[in-house]
Design a binder for these strands. Sequence first.
RNA 1: UGCGGGGUAGAGCAGCGGUAGCUCGUUGGGCUCAUAACCCAAAGGUCGUAGGUUCGAUCCCUACCCCCGCUACCA
Length: 676
Amino acid sequence: MSKFKRHLITAALPYANGPVHVGHLAGCYLPADIYVRYLRSKGEDVKFICGSDEHGVPITIKAKKEGITPQQVVDKYHGMMDASFKEFGISFDIYSRTSKKIHHETAAGFFKTLYDKGVFTEEVTEQYYDEKANQFLADRYITGTCPKCNNENAYGDQCEKCGSSLSPTELINPKSTLSGEKPVLKKTKNWFLPLDKMQPQISAYIESHKDWKSNVYGQCKSWLDQKLQPRAMTRDLDWGVKVPLKDAEGKVLYVWFDAPIGYISATKELLGDDWKKYWQDKESRLIHFIGKDNIVFHCIIFPAMLMAHGEYITPDNVPANEFLNLEGDKISTSRNWAVWLHEYLEEFKGKQDVLRYALCANAPEAKDNDFTWKDFQARNNNELVAILGNFVNRTLVLSEKYYGGKVPQADEYNKNDLYLLEELKKFPDKISASLDAFRLREALSELMNLARAGNKYLADNEPWKIAASDEKRVRSVMNISLQVCASLSVLMEPFLPFSAAKLGGMLNLKGLRWRDAERTDLLKAGHQLGTASLLYDKIEDEVIEAQVNKLHESKKMNATPSSILPQKAETSFDDFSKMDIRVGTILEAERVPKTDKLLKLKIDTGIDQRTVVSGIAADYKPEEIIGQKVAILVNLAPRKIKGIESQGMILMAENAEGKLAFVSPTRDINNGGLIK
RNA sequence: UGCGGGGUAGAGCAGCGGUAGCUCGUUGGGCUCAUAACCCAAAGGUCGUAGGUUCGAUCCCUACCCCCGCUACCA
């Protein structure tokens, strides 16, 4: 039925610097798994590819911090992720890793092909080099004073204090984090993918996929409208895939060049020579499941690489999800604000499907969504237990009671029966339509509608009431209810594979395909059913409260230690006394238009009244700070901000969350009073 | 600030030109086979704001506001 002979489905390669959390699952692994299981159930030829992304700078930094090698870092997390995906029922055909030999060969080969075809442009730039450590420094390995806010601990790519994005050469007093030495500028050559020149064909490619999700298509359009820029595909670093050229000593492939090729090398590893069918045959369909942070790489850069190579098909669809928040706050690995999959699996043994259900029902398909434990509990208790589990349970309990677990013979169908059976036949196609359009939440809710229909049918026909008076009728009602259970067991498999298997066991059915779900004779009269047991248990309030508490405690623990910055370099009293800090009073305050954080203040410094622009609007409203006593550095060189000359700087204290507070004398000191 | 996504009942979402719909929650009733489960019914929305196009707008156009992401600013 599909115009494609085979499907290659990938899920974003998770970065091997931390374990898997619910955000990852909801973003791409669960949707991809549901889609793949659905295709398999339809009998399609499908391969599901994933693996750990093990290169890139953050891993080398993490290794340094923990005093181990990068290889040890990735080994640890690769093992964890592999195991927890497996236990959660993410049914990869292969879960590989980019540190494997086959990947290094494939990625290097791919690069070499592009190089030989003359695709790349070469550019020599000046980069910082650490002479003591004998290597070029990635942006993150350089710290120095931020030229914008004087923060002495700014990184080469970004100042975390003021948020400015920087280039390493802008830093004042740059320092290598490897040796502490001052790095020197040294020329280095890198290879660029000329996306600017490829813009026409990339545009044509994107334009031919207007059917993509609006968040994906919109993001791509935005990049194209801003004109693509050449992008460096190599880096001066020693952790990664070596650039396969003679004059490229000490260089590796850019992670975003190397990572998507991981899909290709994993396919090779899985299939041997057959891999080409999936990547190079026009009748193959390539689909990437990713989170929104990866859209550009999968929709523009990777397709550009594939086109430049020439022998590959391009992604047919990239159904990217938005982000999942947790209890109202962004999920963060470093702040330990997350529900970790390996911990969930430990604490909720056998409840994989509950999390699968909660995440799918609330997946961030169109916008960011919030995962809350309360919602998780409600989904389980009010939907899985009360609707799906209950329908199956009441049907099987009655069958056991009336017929000793043997499927009864249906006699004549009445109006009610025919109506339900007609409805039943529509479900596989209805759910298919939603799944084919990557509307998984909708598909899941359709599935639940079948269970709802079953519950209603039982309530309307009340077999328990007529059990004694009309045995014939009861046999028909129970037969039909059992057929609905059988269809459910097939249709729920992509979403709830563990429950589907359990239900299959209770019904003593297996090996059914998607199409079978529309049949109304899956269970023959006389067929012996297995033993009934509950599909889902209620989750009590205490369990949920415990999880919420755990979350908040870990947040508290993380808030304090890591956020205290180390002491700055020693300074002299002379240097300190150059600062002229005075007590002042805020006379006027107003928002600087078109900015989020800036206030324009008029301050009485005792010396004069002057204008100061200050980034405090997130914490203070203009009207509430009039009359506030402040500490002000008055002899700071004036600087124009948003066209307003700022003549000084207000001193602010900052807590771990970045909240600001005025520094102000505790007894009444007149304006102009010296702070020393 | 620029770009993208989003703003629809208490919560989560669908609808995207013809007098607002789904799930959960709430309230009332029924039932008792079933895990205090199930079934029925009701309440609850001026569809972010203001203009415009149209016989008619939640849906199209314009401006603005709010939330999220990337980006800028944050002395």
